[in-house]
């Protein structure tokens, strides 16, 4: 199925948000995730299964003033 991650269309197998983060090498504790413009609470990463067409945003802290 296809999901858009940070603006990039990607082919991914059906999986949970937690699994997606792990496959991307991202530490779930250090990011915030939006799914279809709604914030996904960290506790729901393991229970939320991605659906075809989802728009996922994965954000983290970077240097800034």
């Amino acid at each position: 199925m296809q999901v858009t991650i940070n603006g990039e269309l990607r082919d991914v197998p059906p999986q949970t948000t937690q699994q997606l983060l792990e496959s991307l090498g991202i530490d779930p504790r250090k990011v915030a995730v939006e799914r279809n413009a709604e914030i996904l609470p960290k506790a729901e990463y393991v229970t939320t299964t991605l659906a075809d067409g989802d728009r996922i945003e994965i954000l983290h802290f970077v240097g800034g003033g």
Binding site: I5, N6, L24, V31, I58, F61, V62, G63
Partner: peptide, 14 residues
């Protein structure tokens, strides 16, 4: 700190 998209292809040092 600022809040930005994770770069999916770069190394994940943060």
């Amino acid at each position: 700190v600022a809040v930005r998209r994770v770069n999916l292809d770069r190394n994940k040092e943060s």
